[in-house]
Simulated assay, not measured.
Amino acid sequence: MLSLIRNTVVKTARMVETGGNALVQQSRARLSTGSQQQQRTFYEFRTYCIRPEKNASFIKLTNEKIHLRTAHSELIGYWSVEYGALNQVVHIWKYDGYSMRAGVRAALAQDPKWLEEYISVAMPMLTSQDNEVTALAPWTPSLQGPPKQGVHTLWWYDGADQRAAADRDARLLTAVKESGDLLLSQRNKLMFPCAFSPLK
């Protein structure tokens, strides 16, 4: 299981509110031309919302055709959301840079098997797609699998009870207390790995 926690910080929201559209455009320009381009490895989190009646069919199709996608870049993990949002899947792809991602996307757009056997069948099953680019914190060595299966919150636990106990950890409570005034919202998802997910 993976427990994914997303935090939205007030500082970011205030910047967008005060800067309006110009700030959004400036941020987009920095993303494509700024120092982020020098960052090497990053991870793309993709979230797909699936039509409720198509959830099982989508997972089955992806299980059968994921090899067409993994031929182009590395899949870190693929999960089905159990709690926090229904009929969703979350998957993480690793890229060695923005130019690599652009090359992968261009190659996929020209791959007839990918387009005919997967995209043309899968897209009508979805209601929406979302993606986020995430770089690891400097002190994080790499995004690797745990030594065994368990519950994950960007770190791993032996089970849900151990994960719940972590919420009572004094260090975590102190960190939350000290940064709580910056937190605008928090979303949690409990997810189970799909059979074809490298990260379990």
Rank of each mutant, 00 (worst) to 15 (best):
D96C: 02
L61A: 07
R101C: 10
L4D: 00
P112H: 05
L61T: 08
R51Y: 00
V81M: 11
L154T: 00
F45R: 06
Q144M: 10
I66Y: 13
N7T: 12
S128C: 13
G103D: 14
H91F: 12
T134S: 15
H91I: 09
H72V: 04
W155L: 02
E64M: 10
H152V: 04
Q26E: 15
W114D: 02
Y78F: 13
N131R: 14
A160Y: 10
A170R: 06
K54W: 10
W79E: 01
G145T: 10
I59Y: 06
S185I: 05
R28E: 12
S179A: 10
P146M: 06
D169W: 11
E132H: 15
N55P: 02
G77F: 00
L115Y: 07
F42H: 11
N7V: 12
V104T: 13
N7P: 03
A137M: 13
L182N: 11
V90G: 04
A22F: 10
T18S: 07
D169H: 10
E17M: 05
Q25G: 04
Q26P: 02
W93L: 10
V151G: 03
D181N: 06
M191R: 03
Q186G: 02
L31A: 13
G97I: 00
K65E: 04
Y43K: 05
I92K: 05
L61R: 06
P112A: 03
R28Q: 12
E17C: 00
G145Q: 11
L115Q: 15
T140W: 03
R28T: 04
P112Q: 11
A29P: 00
P198S: 09
S35L: 09
A102L: 07
Y83Q: 11
E116N: 15
H72D: 07
A29I: 00
Y98T: 01
Y157C: 06
E74Y: 03
A106C: 04
